[in-house]
Amino acid sequence: MGIKSFLASRKNQNKITNDVPLRVSDYMTTKLITFKADERIDKVIDALIKYKISGGPVVNDKHELIGIISEGDCIKQISESRYYNMPMNDHTVESCMVKNVETIDGNMNIFDAANKFLESKHRRFPIVENGKLVGQISQKDVLKAAMGMKGNNWK
């Protein structure tokens, strides 16, 4: 006795797949809070609190990325200011920011970006195109992308 299949022929079925990789540029933030090198640290701290962010890119007048300033950088300034009993008014972003900034490509797969976060321990990566800051991807953006793919095949 042979086995009978009651299913239709499978040759012509349309297979639904998600072959398009999820790119960083699909999930990056483009409306950024940015800072200038000559801004005072207390103004940066006010902005971090007001906008509930943990840091942001530092750009010049041509919107080129020149550094990153974070909560940790600001806390370090507060600590040193208190230790030396000096006011923070003299401190600018330029004296506190990280100048050697690691960026990633907007065309990178979102899951490759997740691995980059794990390897580097950074909380955010700026995306630069043609020398200009175009966006930023954060760990939270990667989480949102992953939750949006819940139940699908990740590629």
Rank of each mutant, 00 (worst) to 15 (best):
D105K: 01
E129M: 12
K155P: 03
G106T: 10
C74I: 03
R82D: 00
L48E: 13
V59N: 01
I33S: 06
L22I: 14
I78R: 15
E80S: 04
E64F: 05
A37W: 13
S5H: 15
V128R: 01
M108A: 06
D19F: 03
L22H: 09
I78V: 15
S70K: 13
Q13T: 15
L7R: 14
L65W: 06
I33A: 10
N130I: 09
A146Q: 00
M28Y: 00
Q13W: 15
K52L: 04
V128L: 02
K155C: 00
N89F: 08
M97R: 02
G72Q: 06
N89D: 06
Y27V: 13
S9I: 08
F35S: 12
E71I: 13
Q136F: 10
Q77S: 12
V58N: 07
I45Q: 05
I68F: 15
D19W: 01
E71V: 15
R23P: 12
A145W: 06
K31Y: 07
T29P: 07
K15D: 09
E119H: 04
E94P: 11
P126Y: 11
R82C: 04
R124V: 06
C96E: 12
I53A: 01
K76P: 10
K31P: 00
L22E: 06
E94Q: 14
D141R: 07
V93S: 01
T29L: 09
R124K: 11
M149T: 03
S81V: 14
I16T: 13
K144S: 07
I49F: 03
N107A: 09
G56I: 06
G135F: 11
F125C: 10
L7E: 15
D112Q: 11
S79W: 07
A37H: 14
F35T: 11
E64D: 03
M108R: 09
C74Q: 14
T34K: 04
G2K: 02
S70W: 02
D105Y: 01
T29E: 12
M108W: 04
G56F: 10
T92A: 03
M97F: 03
V128Y: 04
N60L: 06
K52M: 03
D90I: 01
L32N: 12
I137D: 03
V128D: 00
Q139Y: 00
